[in-house]
Amino acid sequence: MKEFFKVLRNGLSLENPLTVLMIGLCSTLAVSTKFEGSLFMGIAVIFVLVMSNVLISAIRKFTPDEVRIPIFIVVIASFVTIVDLVLKGYFPSVYSFLGVWIPLIVVNCIVLGRAEAYAYHNGVVHSIADGIGMGLGYTIIIAGLAAFRELFGSGKLSFLGNTLVNFGAGYRGPNILLLFPGAFILFGLVIAGSHALNRRTARKEAV
């Protein structure tokens, strides 16, 4: 059980897919303009990651090395399609915002990367922990980035039709926050911040 949480925590900090492993950045930069959409994107990635990790780990003994990548892709693509259909049917507003980024989870390096680097070599239980940890690590960063960009870029923060914070009509945020350059700059700051944090924890543990 201790091992389970250690694996889970790894995804959040020391091996965070976005700030440390630097994979899956494309969707992060593109989608993080709206808090609500990013949160659902994160949930979709968590679901796909956990499910594909479980399945790939469960069938790893029967998966020949030579054809493992096609098998991973089929498994991942199936779960992504399930997410795609469910979002389209039940959350049309979220679906219309995320659009092409949902099907593109198939080629998100995090999912294939974890299948190849972790689930293929580890047991089902640890693969679940890895999936949740990596997924949460992704979600926290993308949702935080999106909340900041939406709030300070457009002056209000809304979730499922409710406005959570509103700076009022007088607020004119810097447009760059909502555009791609803003995403790059902000994300750079996030990486710097998380590295500083990781280094401090590492130093504390060493003492």
Binding site: T33, K34, P92, S96, F97, G99, E150, G153, S154, G173, N175, L178, L179
Partner: peptide, 9 residues
């Protein structure tokens, strides 16, 4: 009906 324009712009 639906669109995917940049939020805020």
């Amino acid at each position: 009906v639906s669109m995917a324009e940049t939020p805020g712009l």
